[in-house]
């Protein structure tokens, strides 16, 4: 089971109300390479991956939910004081018409989240390579978001998340090596 802890993994601050930035950040909430996709992908792959890497998928998958909460907090803080007119000016009019100020799992362009963003192939190497690619894509997205953002407080949190993707990618690469080693051992005997 999972236990919720009433704290963010890393402090999230924003300098000002900025619904335009929030609109872009939604990419990492319900987008193809976002935190929801990451969490669901890893936690689902666990059941059929070799035992040696189940712990890693469990722990990274769990951390992704903490990142999802950080992104939600950023979006919430960037939009909570915005008027409907400000949301409209920021390109969030379509969102407001359907959801008011509520968050929803869609990408920056408003496309709703779909399970087709993620895969579970049952082949451990194929699955782990997908996971490495997912981390690299998420890292790139965070970079594009930082490049567009002029909010130093927000960027501090975004940089933390970008660095986590680098670590996750590194750990998944190590997992591939562990499985390759196992496979080669079996071949010798």
């Amino acid at each position: 089971m999972w236990i919720y802890e009433k704290k963010l993994q890393y402090p999230v601050k924003v300098s000002t109300c900025n619904p335009t930035l929030a609109k872009y950040l939604i990419e990492q909430y319900g987008g193809a390479d976002g935190e929801l996709a990451a969490a669901l992908r890893y936690l689902n792959q666990r059941y059929t991956i070799p035992d040696k890497v189940v712990g890693l998928l469990t722990d990274i998958g769990t951390e992704e939910f903490a990142h999802l909460e950080m992104i939600a907090t950023m979006i919430y803080k960037l939009t909570k004081d915005a008027t409907p007119q400000q949301l409209r000016d920021a390109g969030l009019g379509d969102h407001y018409a359907n959801h008011d100020g509520a968050l929803f799992y869609h990408n920056a362009a408003g496309v709703p989240f779909t399970a087709t963003y993620i895969q579970a192939k049952g082949d451990p190497i194929a699955d782990l390579y997908e996971d490495i690619a997912a981390e690299e894509k998420a890292r790139a997205t965070y970079q594009w978001l930082i490049d567009m953002s002029d909010d130093p407080d927000l960027n501090d949190g975004l940089r933390f998340l970008r660095e986590r993707e680098i670590i996750h990618s590194q750990r998944f690469r190590e997992a591939v090596e562990i499985l390759k080693e196992e496979r080669d051992k079996k071949k010798i005997f």
């Binding site: 993994q9 890393y10 890693l56 722990d59 990274i60 951390e63 670590i167 996750h168 750990r171 190590e174």
Partner: peptide, 20 residues
């Protein structure tokens, strides 16, 4: 809270490191 976040971050890092 920030102190807890810092210490727990060490634990997250060590967890993933020890997994591999």
């Amino acid at each position: 809270l920030e102190q807890i976040q810092a210490v727990d971050f060490v634990l997250v890092e060590l967890t993933l490191y020890l997994d591999t």
